[in-house]
């Protein structure tokens, strides 16, 4: 392999701009959809399980086990059932995103001080009302942190989706790796990687903004 000339990446980038934008958009989309699915399922599970010791431990443990399955293996396992492309990618990413979401929902709801819980009950709030109008807003920053971690996780793992012909910037990384030594190999891999990092940073900024806008001033750090 010859010495790589970094200055060549810029012409490559301009040349492939349309495709890069398309792949980046796909990447963002696949992350958004899968984290959204995981949020709907994970937060609901957390709201239901937080005060049931057995269910709560089982949920977190299961989500933890899922996260330990190597992503290649999980994606490969899904090919027979879901084929190639978007569907297995979305399902895998949603599954991986579950742990931080479920765990932070449960932890956040349980961390609400006992005195706050007791005075809420003592004033005649129903359990559902306590959950939604007292616990949920107080736990919100913790839950949001879970969503943020889940998103970062999904952004990274999404690049492996190219393995099942999935969408996103993984396509560039895999392409680069498979033609190592060829003229544009590193250009592909590097562009894919840098774009993923940029997307991750943008999402992080977005979460900081959302946190500021949706957290009560009374509990902001």
């Amino acid at each position: 392999m010859g010495k790589y000339d970094l200055s060549l990446i810029w012409p490559f980038f301009l040349d492939k701009l349309d495709e890069i934008i398309e792949l980046s958009t796909e990447h963002v989309l696949v992350v958004l959809i899968s984290v959204l699915l995981a949020t709907i399922f994970g937060v609901s599970l957390g709201l239901f399980a937080w005060d049931k010791p057995l269910l709560r431990s089982a949920s977190i443990a299961t989500a933890g086990v899922i996260l330990t399955i190597p992503s290649m293996a999980l994606l490969a396992l899904m090919i027979p059932t879901f084929g190639l492309g978007w569907v297995p990618t979305l399902i895998a990413l949603a599954l991986y995103s579950l742990l931080p979401i479920v765990r932070n929902t449960v932890v956040g709801l349980r961390e609400v001080p006992e005195a706050v819980m007791e005075s809420a009950r003592g004033m005649g709030m129903s359990p559902l009302r306590v959950l939604l109008s007292v616990q949920m807003p107080i736990a919100w920053p913790v839950i949001l942190t879970g969503l943020r971690v889940a998103t970062q996780l999904a952004i990274g793992i999404a690049s492996i989706a190219a393995y099942v012909a999935g969408p996103g910037l993984g396509v560039y990384i895999f392409k680069g790796l498979s033609m190592l030594g060829a003229k544009n190999a590193l250009n592909f891999a590097l562009t894919g990687t840098v774009m993923i990092i940029i997307i991750a940073l943008l999402f992080d900024a977005l979460f900081i903004l959302i946190k500021r806008l949706t957290t009560s001033r009374g509990i902001r750090g």
Binding site: P113, E114, A115, V116, M117, E118, S119, A120, G122, M123, V134, P137, I138, S216, G218, I219
Partner: peptide, 13 residues
């Protein structure tokens, strides 16, 4: 109902 730890809701004014 008033308790020693007060238990005001921190997210509410």
């Amino acid at each position: 109902y008033v308790i020693q730890q007060i238990g005001l809701f921190p997210h509410m004014t």
